[in-house]
Amino acid sequence: MVAPSQRTAPCVLHAEQLSRVYPSGEGTITALAPFTHVFAPGLTAVVGPSGSGKSTLLNLLAGFDTPTTGRVVVGETDLHALPEVRRADFRLAHYGFVFQNHNLVPILTALENVEFPLTLAGVPKRERRERARALLEGVGLSGRASHLPAQLSGGEAQRVAIARALARNPDVLLADEPTGNLDTRTGERVLELLIGPAREGRTVVLITHDREVATRADHTLQVRDGAVTVGG
């Protein structure tokens, strides 16, 4: 696997005239109005009230949802032009995800959860075990490797989720309200773990409603009523 220090040119994430419109009984609902933006390497905070379109944007950037118009380009790859199976493979190779509710596999230990994307990628057991142990050590949880998610605190589970997201050295890291359910001190520690990859030249997109969290970002997007603007 390629270590962050060995990376050359960053893999640019680019939204081109991206939009999402849903049909409704009274016509249509614009969840996300068309917008174009290059997500520069570093940490981009996407802020806005609940229901503003932040999660819609994240789902489109990840390829979980299909845009009404436009496309998402990662490096030179048009994400939505890929067949579903190839798009899933592309996500596995190039994306990492951190969700507000962790989404850890409940029957796997912390170590096994971090290993999971490496297992899917066919990485040999010894190599993936060494990588997972190093990542858990990096987030300060080497002593919790054998614990199941139910035996972890919320902050610990979120740190395991970040270690898992970093397992394949992703070009793009997407985080949906990763500090939303955490106390201030724990949230700060989780935020620092996300700032680290951004400083290494990865593209980290962080959805948040917390203005204080947003002030730590390199770049900011404001989403309100489906409209995306730079800054805010």
Rank of each mutant, 00 (worst) to 15 (best):
S55L: 11
L92I: 05
R211A: 15
P34H: 05
A175L: 02
P124H: 02
G48P: 05
D176R: 01
G53A: 09
R87Y: 05
V160P: 00
F97Y: 11
T69V: 01
H102R: 10
G140R: 04
A157V: 01
L206S: 05
T184N: 00
V38Q: 13
K54F: 04
Y95M: 15
A167C: 05
T28H: 08
V21M: 08
G201F: 10
S153V: 12
V38D: 14
R202K: 10
T69W: 02
G53E: 09
I207A: 08
E212W: 02
G75T: 01
V204A: 07
F99A: 06
N181V: 02
V190F: 01
A33L: 03
E200M: 11
V74M: 04
A40E: 14
P178K: 00
L82F: 01
G63A: 10
Q17E: 12
S50G: 11
P67I: 15
A9L: 13
G75D: 04
Q17F: 00
I162V: 12
L57V: 05
L152D: 07
T203Y: 01
R224Q: 12
L152H: 04
D183A: 04
P10S: 13
H102N: 13
T109H: 06
N103S: 13
A227Q: 15
E156M: 06
V47T: 13
R164H: 03
A3E: 12
N103L: 13
G51C: 09
T36G: 12
A62V: 07
R126W: 00
G63I: 10
S142Q: 12
A45F: 07
A150S: 15
L193Q: 03
R131I: 11
A40Q: 13
D78F: 03
A3R: 12
R144Q: 07
E127V: 14
T109N: 11
G53T: 05
V72P: 00
A81I: 07
F64W: 08
Y22D: 11
F99H: 02
H37A: 02
A217V: 13
S5K: 08
E212R: 14
P67N: 09
L111Q: 14
T215K: 13
V46H: 07
H80C: 10
R216W: 01
E212C: 02
Q222W: 09
R211D: 14
A62E: 12
G96L: 09
G48V: 10
S146R: 05
R91A: 11
S52P: 02
N59L: 12
G180P: 01
P178V: 06
V46Y: 09
Y22Q: 12
L32A: 04
V172T: 06
L191H: 03
T30I: 01
E127Q: 13
F90R: 10
V160F: 04
L174A: 05
P4L: 15
R133D: 07
Q222P: 04
T208M: 07
K54M: 06
